[in-house]
Structure formats: C-alpha cells, structure tokens
Design a protein around this nucleic acid. Structure first.
Lengths: 121, 121
DNA sequence: TCGATATTTCGATATTTTCCGAACTATCGA
DNA sequence: TCGATAGTTCGGAAAATATCGAAATATCGA
C-alpha cells in the first residue's frame, strides 16, 4: 500500500521555483523527453540556446531541487530528469487541488490520456 | 471533444513563479480548500500570517497569473481559486512529463485517488 | 606531458523580488 | 457627512536572481 508521504512545503517551493524560468523549464522538458539516457550539458546548452556557464548555473539549481541528476561520462557530464521527483511534485499539487474539492478536479484523472493524445511525435 | 490547446510557455512560467513562494502557495492552497465561496483578503492575511499590504501584493501576483479571481462584497474583497487555471497548469506539466515517456508517468493517473486518501480535510 | 575539449566556478553587475510603513480609496453605519 | 473598517497603492531599502567574461578543473588523445 502506497504511503501518504507529503514532501515538505519548502521542497515543493524550491521545485516550483526551479521550474519557474523559461530556460530551466525548457531544459527540464528536454531532459524528460531525452529519457534515462539523458543529455550532455553542452548539447543541452546548444539546444536551449544559452551559454555553457549560464546553463551550468541552471543545471545546478534544477539538480539542487532534485528534479535532475547528473553523471560523468568521459569529458561530458550527462544530465537526466528525475521522474520520481516530478511525480512527487505533481502529486503534491494534485492533492492540494483535489483534496479540497474532489469533484472539481476529477477530470484531472483523464489528463494523462490527454497528454498522450496531444504530445506530437 | 476536448481541444489540445497548450498554454504558452510564458504563462506556465508565470503560474509556476506565482506558486513558488511559501506564502503564495499557502494562500492558493487555502483558497482551493475554501471552494467557490472564497475568502476575504483580511481573513486570508490572518490565516497565512502576513500583513494586509504584503498579502495584497501576493494576491495581485496570483491573480495576474490567472490562478485566482476576486470579487467585491461590501467592504471586503473575496478571493477564490480558479480551478481551470490550475488544471491547465497541471495539464501542461503532466503532458510535458508523460508526452516523452508515457510508461514512466502512467502511475500519475492514480494520483487523484491517492490525493483523496491522503488529504485529511 | 601537452593541447584540446567539456564543464564548472568565480567575481562583478544589472535586474527582479520581497517586504515594510505610510498614505490613499472604497464601503458601510450612524 | 463622519468615522470606522477593509484593501490597495506607493516609495524605498534589503535581499535574492540572472547573466556574463575570465579563470579554473577534469578528461581524453597524441
């Protein structure tokens, strides 16, 4: 049976804050789509269009929030999204929403399907 | 049939940014639980524990992001959560997540139920 | 060991955010 | 109309963010 552990509010705020930036959101989005394989910092920088050192700062912020992980592979450092952290964050938001007014947020259950249909490629 | 309209990234960032603050998150949480009835600004300020003028700033930020609405009622101004905006935000996040790796985010569908079980009043 | 590649760290600056006190606006009741 | 109540707006100071160039670190290949 799944526990009902709730992430501390401070952590949630940190995660939201980490994602509340155009470039960081783009980075996270990119990494989610890259899957477990991940992407090298340099490739991310090129894709997103930010300088390597600036990107490094963003990656540090996302990593500190627990949303991404990193591993060295030769000269490159490979970053990948942490799906569990994202699930925790979504879980908090959804339970905050549905917890108070279940009937209003009921449609949320179908969102995953919608996501399937909407996401191209 | 539901459209697959995607909120502009800038709007998503603004919403995330609005929620990425301890007091604002608390305010939103409070309003979600308050339902359509909403709460007066003063009551929110007391509950959250911030000065009225500071709260006013936070409310403006949340309202500008579209996460809450307001209406005047006598001397009070009543604020209430905008569930649709929240659904849009969650929809974006979920589709960003599940769009790339559906199998990984599949458990998300069950989160709403979890929310039901976890949230005590 | 040296040079090239990949990334981070440092230091500084520009911008934004946060928060408060004081002043202002709106509404109600007498 | 006045005074009290409810909120907002204004102005400024302190803190946090964002971003860049330059320098430092780590790894690879020759």
């Amino acid at each position: 049976m799944a526990q009902c552990e709730m992430a501390p509010v401070a952590d949630v705020v940190e995660s939201l804050s980490a994602l509340a930036h155009v470039h960081r959101l783009a980075v996270f989005q990119l990494l989610v789509r890259a899957g477990a394989e991940g992407m090298a910092a340099g490739e991310i920088a090129r894709d997103v269009g930010v300088l390597p050192n600036t990107l490094s700062t963003h990656l540090t912020i996302l990593a500190h929030a627990g949303l991404i992980r990193s591993r060295r592979e030769g000269r490159s450092i490979i970053y990948s999204a942490d799906y569990e952290a994202m699930r925790d964050l979504l879980g908090f938001l959804v339970s905050d929403c549905c917890g108070g007014q279940p009937e209003i947020c009921a449609p949320l259950v179908g969102i995953a399907d919608v996501a399937d249909r909407c996401s191209p490629q």
